[in-house]
Amino acid sequence: MADLWETMEALRREIDRAFEDFGFRTEPFFRTAFLPGRAARRYPLVNIYADRDALYVEALAPGVDPASLDISVLRNTLTLAGEKRRVPEDVRPEAFHRSERATGRFVRTIELPLEVDENNVRADYKNGLLVVTLPKAERVKPKQINVQVS
């Protein structure tokens, strides 16, 4: 049963990749994620890093109240939710010279490329960057194989 599920996953990912190559993929460059309109599509923007033991999801989320952050992991799906508040809230609209920073509630679901240990996920928020550390599940970690010399 697990095999079937994984096969389906692999197939779906294959299709996603095909679409990316077809020109839907956008080159990585710095996008101003906080402009209104654009933010409605994908917020927050994320970078994903990996090393031998864990995946790291780094999200660009300045000005988010840490208490409003709601992070959950189910199988290989990570959900980031929270709220970026307009501070302070009592400024009259006519007092604004410029208003470029988008604010509001956000939810984003990110599919992780491999299985993670759901029980040991941790999240840190520093300098406006949210980092979620997801240890790899034991069975997907690379195994060191010793070569026997005969």
Binding site: P28, I48, Y49, E58, P113
Partner: peptide
């Protein structure tokens, strides 16, 4: 500065 020092596998933004 990025908060993580590891191999990038997926990128949507670049910290400049």
């Amino acid at each position: 500065r990025p908060a993580v020092q590891a191999d990038p596998i997926y990128r949507e933004y670049e910290l400049v």
